[in-house]
Structures are given as structure tokens and as C-alpha cells.
Design a protein around this nucleic acid. Structure first.
Length: 414
RNA sequence: GUGGCUGUAGCUCAGUUGGUUAGAGCGCCUGGUUGUGGUCCAGGAGGCCGUGGGUUCAAAUCCCAUCAGCCACCCCA
């Protein structure tokens, strides 16, 4: 191991892995566009305030996981830990409220200073879908449907389960939160240290604790369902019905919660058991209060984010590199002819490799290692006849082909 | 951030109670072919045993620290 290591929690993505990433991103982008979600991009860093206000001052991400730096005393900046905040900010900065609804697709690197594990790096990549300006539950259904469609297209849907919950509207939520806090206050003595901490910062999260003692207390805690008003119930019913109509199976998980106040109604997560503790693969929900919270006009929104690394780990077989055709000159006299031929074939749209050195045997060997589909051998004999020998590297068959029809002949190899 | 496991060639791993020149498979290079790859055969290169310190006559092996990966918690995609 060299001492010249990449920074902890970061890694280089070499071509084999990059192809996996690309399959994930390209598949998601293409499907999102099919649903009308257009790709956009925001800066990798923002004023720290953007994340503080959108993620909440007390969230773990903000309190201990952000890469924050300052260039001048007036500029405190942060590498984005997630995408939604930047998109919401762009929505406000650009005065985009006039054009609702807006549908966006996004992909790019995110940064969180967490303790690294498999499927959890400090620089990681997400794909992201956001729907702004739609308050109706059909929006939730569409957004979840895209998620399911992407997972299906990637062949990983059957490795996941969709968990679904509702957080109700602000009124329901406030009532439930108050009841929960009151209940847990009465049972402080039986709660774990972690949960006591959550009680102040993010009481709903206690519901998701894995601690055994906590679980016993939680068993008798008030249920969200009892605090949902009629409107919230109707909203959730419509979402569920929509999913059923689309044959998207889900399981209700009352412990699936989001801590911050601007989250409303639908919360969902596609989870897997194949990635250990990093089970969440694609997750999102409705955030009707977010844009107002960070200073924009009250605008409903819903979206999800998915981890590219996690999805690429679930991908069954790795996509193979494209198979080129290799041009092989024989002897120094053929070098120039090979060079011009290579360029001509490339301009005709073919994937061509031209080795930079070596004799015939070496070049053939290299062609094999490139998983080349065919070799175009160009020597004195061939040149004398204005032709090239085309060798099919899968079958070993070869034939003499006139240079005039060479690109057509090679096109057969796809 | 807390607790734990691990760290030997490019990769996957052996390495006996601390004891001479640290091994294997795969991969890589060369040759067996002067114009033909994959298979086969022969040969070869490549390791400050993660890093730094300590114990010892002697450390890949024991101890400490540090860095990194992994597992669980936390949190989350």
C-alpha cells in the first residue's frame, strides 16, 4: 500500500465501475425524461445557510457531517450533503414560481463526513427527482412510480421492498408530535441515551430506534394514525390507491419518519437486505414546507434521491466495455496507411483501436485483451490490392476485403 | 462520533511455537512463430509484510500509536 492514499471515504472510479455508475445514471435520466423530468444542475457548494435552513440546525447532517469552509469572513460555504436544498434554492433564486409545476432530474456527487462503510462514502453520488408545485397526491404516486420504474429497469426492483408511511399535514403532525413528546417525557427513565437526545432534537425518530429498551417503550406509544385528521387520511388513501392501480406493491411502516417540520404526508423508502446496514437505496417524500422555510413562496414539493454506489452494487452483471475493431499494420510500410484508415473508419462512426507499437503478434494479443470484435490487418500484400484482411476474432474466420467497402463490412460487427 | 475485526506481490490469499534468500494461484512480461490473438509449454519480473515507534541476539509474526478498509451502532442514499 502506498502512503499516497485517497482521502478517507473517497475513491477513484475506474472504467469498470464507471460503467456501472453510468448504467444507473443513464437509465434513470432517460426514464425521468420520459416522465417529463428534465435534467438540471446546481453548484457543488452553497452558502452554509442553505443547508442549515433546509436540513435543520439540529439534524445530524448539519451538526456533524458537513464539509464547511470559508473563503472570506462573509462567505461560509458548504459542499452539498444532498441535492434538494440546492434545487429549492435555485427555484427561489431563479424566480421559477411562475412556471409551476416543475419537474427536475438531477445527478451528481454529494459530501458527508460520516464514518465510511461499504455503500457509505464521504463523497458519494446520487440521482434525484423533484416535483415542485403539485399539492395533489397524484404527484406522490407519479414520483414513486418513477422510482419503481428505474429500479425495475435496472433489474433490482425484486431485491427491494417499498416501505410507505404518512406524516400527515402540519396540523396532524403537530398534534402527534406533542402527544409523542408527552408520552416519552413520562418514560424518560426507560429511554436510551440516544433516544433522550432525540427527544429534544427529533422525537419522531425515537420510533425507529433499534435499542431493545426503547422498543418496549415504543410499543405503547401513541400511534400516528390516531392523530391524522380527515384530510390527511384522504390524501394518504389516494396515494395508496394510486400505487395499487399501478401494481406497485408496498408495505406500511409506521416507524418510517422524517424529523423536520416541513416534511408532510408521504414518506417512502425502497430498501434492500443485500447491503447490510445501508439498506436504503431510494428514498424520498413530500416536503410542502421546505421552500417557504428557506425563504421562498409557499410551494409544495415531493421527490426522492437514490445512491448511485448502492444501486451499482445491486446491479447483477457488470456492463461490458464496448468492443472495438483493431487496425493492425504489418511492417513499417503499412503504418501510414493504417493511420489514415483508422481515422477514416472512426469518422464513419466505428469504434477503432490502433496500437501504437509492436509486431503483428503483439498487436493481435492486445486486440484480444481489448475484447476486440475483429482485427483489420494491413500489410504489403493487402495494400498491393487496395484491400485489408478482416479477421473475426470470435470465430477466427478471415477474408480479404476491399478498402472501398471496408466500413460497410465492419458495420456488421456492430 | 462509539464499539469491534482486518491490513503480506496488480488481484485473491498461505506464511508453522518470533529464527537464514517471504510463498501459491490468477494477472503481467519474454520465448516456443519469419505476417496472426484466445489454449498449451518453458522462463522471468514484481513485496521497506499499510506507516511510525518499541520489546528481542533475532519481528510479517509480540506490544503501542497512527492511517486505511470492513462490521455494528449513530445517521442516511
Amino acid at each position: 500500500m502506498s502512503t499516497l492514499q485517497p482521502v478517507r471515504g473517497t475513491r477513484d472510479i475506474l472504467p469498470d465501475e464507471m460503467r456501472r455508475h453510468r448504467v444507473v445514471i443513464d437509465t434513470a435520466r432517460a426514464l425521468a425524461e420520459q416522465y417529463g423530468y428534465l435534467e438540471m444542475s446546481t453548484p457543488v457548494f452553497e452558502f452554509t445557510e442553505v443547508f442549515k435552513r433546509s436540513l435543520g440546525d439540529t439534524s445530524d447532517v448539519v451538526t456533524k457531517e458537513m464539509y464547511t469552509f470559508s473563503m472570506k469572513e462573509s462567505e461560509e460555504l458548504t459542499l452539498r450533503p444532498e441535492a434538494t436544498a440546492g434545487i429549492a434554492r435555485a427555484f427561489i433564486s431563479g424566480g421559477l414560481a411562475q412556471q409551476l409545476p416543475l419537474k427536475y432530474f438531477y445527478s451528481g456527487p454529494m459530501f458527508r463526513h460520516e464514518r465510511p462503510q461499504k455503500g457509505r462514502q464521504r463523497q458519494f453520488h446520487q440521482i434525484d427527482v423533484e416535483l415542485l408545485g403539485v399539492a395533489e397526491p397524484l404527484g406522490d404516486v407519479e414520483v414513486i412510480a418513477i422510482g419503481a420504474h428505474v429500479l425495475d429497469a435496472l433489474g433490482v426492483l425484486e431485491k427491494t421492498a417499498l416501505e410507505l408511511n404518512t406524516l400527515g399535514d402540519p396540523e396532524s403532525r403537530r398534534a402527534y408530535r406533542a402527544a409523542l413528546v408527552e408520552y416519552f417525557q413520562d418514560h424518560r427513565a426507560r429511554l436510551s441515551a440516544d433516544s433522550l437526545d432525540r427527544l429534544d432534537r427529533n422525537p419522531l425518530r425515537i420510533l425507529d430506534s433499534k435499542n431493545e429498551g426503547d422498543r418496549r417503550v415504543i410499543a405503547d406509544a401513541p400511534l400516528f394514525g390516531d392523530y391524522l385528521n380527515q384530510e390527511s387520511r384522504d390524501f394518504f388513501d389516494t396515494v395508496k390507491t394510486g400505487l395499487e392501480v399501478l401494481d406497485i406493491p408496498y408495505q406500511l411502516n409506521p416507524r418510517l419518519v422524517r424529523g423536520l417540520d416541513y416534511y408532510t404526508h408521504t414518506a417512502f423508502e425502497f430498501t434492500t437486505r443485500e447491503l447490510g446496514a445501508q439498506g436504503a437505496v431510494l428514498a424520498g417524500g413530500r416536503y410542502d414546507g421546505l421552500i417557504e422555510t428557506i425563504g421562498g413562496p409557499s410551494t409544495p414539493g415531493i421527490g426522492w434521491a437514490a445512491g448511485v454506489e448502492r444501486l451499482s452494487m445491486l446491479l447483477g452483471r457488470a456492463p461490458v466495455a464496448p468492443r472495438p475493431v483493431v487496425v493492425v499494420p504489418v511492417g513499417g510500410g503499412a503504418e501510414e496507411a493504417a493511420l489514415t484508415l483508422t481515422q477514416r473508419l472512426r469518422q464513419a462512426g466505428l469504434s477503432i483501436e490502433l496500437g501504437f507499437s509492436g509486431n503483428l503478434k503483439k498487436r493481435m494479443k492486445r486486440a484480444d485483451r481489448l475484447n476486440a470484435r475483429a482485427a483489420v490487418i494491413l500489410g504489403e500484400d493487402e495494400l498491393a490490392r487496395n484491400s485489408a484482411t478482416v479477421r473475426d476474432l470470435d470465430t477466427g474466420e478471415q477474408e480479404l476485403v476491399s478498402l472501398d467497402v471496408l466500413s460497410d463490412r465492419l458495420a456488421r460487427f456492430g
